[in-house]
Design a binder for these strands. Structure first.
Lengths: 140, 140
DNA sequence: CTGGTTGCAAAATTTTTGCACTGGT
DNA sequence: ACCAGTGCAAAAATTTTGCAACCAG
């Protein structure tokens, strides 16, 4: 598990049980919507309020501790900030998997935006399809 | 202007003024949120209701006439279905520009998902940064 | 201590739904 | 004439806000 205490302090955020639980839940599950996070965190911290989840997600996204992953046709999900990667989004179950290897594509994107006089800050690649386990479910 | 009458009929949708206005507005403006569309369409069709906008967007996305473009930190936008392209999203003004050239990246993505036993259906690339005109606004 | 943080309840916003009426085909 | 489509108003769902109590530093 990562050093969330340090991560929060670096960003001028106090270390509360709520925040620790949010971060640990997201680490464990990978990609979660606000509702997903609430449903999980409330199991270990029954008194937490949805407003607290919202406030903290907004705050942690601002501080770049979390990253919003917008997804076509669904609520956005949130993940821990990490090395550049792309997302494999299953259109059946909604699950999101990370895939490293932004490097090859990275060069292409830089060339593209240079020509455009566009200052590139962040890249976001979603590949939509059907994941291995959903393929099995359809054709066992 | 495209043949929206044909496009709607092909998809089993009746040709109404509301739908024509929605499609023409999106063609003219490129990428629009639900609210954007409503604000524009109401100018030429004052009696249209927001519910009609919602119902039609949902319907036309199902029929793949429109495509939802989810954007980090903002409401999703909608565009006409068109050839594969990437999005340059300005984090200052929120504007979205299309850029063709999915080909180079396309190969990379296919190789990636093949290895994963992931059936790739749709690709969505957002590059976030500051567009040329917002750069000028900051440093004139 | 003390300012940031929480939880609650209320407000604001956004999206969906039901239904009578309208208008395309 | 039939039934998809519209508009309205109400309901549901989502997100934000204000504030008193609380607690990490």
């Amino acid at each position: 598990m990562r050093d969330y205490v340090g991560l929060l302090k670096e960003n001028g955020l106090k270390v509360t049980f709520q925040r620790m639980n949010i971060l640990e839940t997201i680490e464990k599950n990978g990609h979660m919507s606000v509702e997903d996070i609430y449903d999980e965190v409330i199991k270990v911290h029954p008194s937490i309020s949805l407003a607290t989840i919202y406030k903290n997600i907004i705050l942690m996204v601002e501080k770049a501790v979390l990253v919003e992953v917008p997804i076509s046709g669904r609520k956005p999900k949130y993940e821990l900030a990490k090395m550049d990667h792309i997302h494999l989004v299953c259109t059946e179950c909604g699950d999101v998997a990370d895939k490293p290897c932004m490097d090859e594509a990275g060069k292409v994107f830089l060339a593209l935006t240079d020509a455009e006089r566009f200052v590139l800050n962040k890249r976001q690649v979603n590949l939509y399809g059907v994941c291995a386990s959903c393929q099995e479910a359809v054709a066992p």
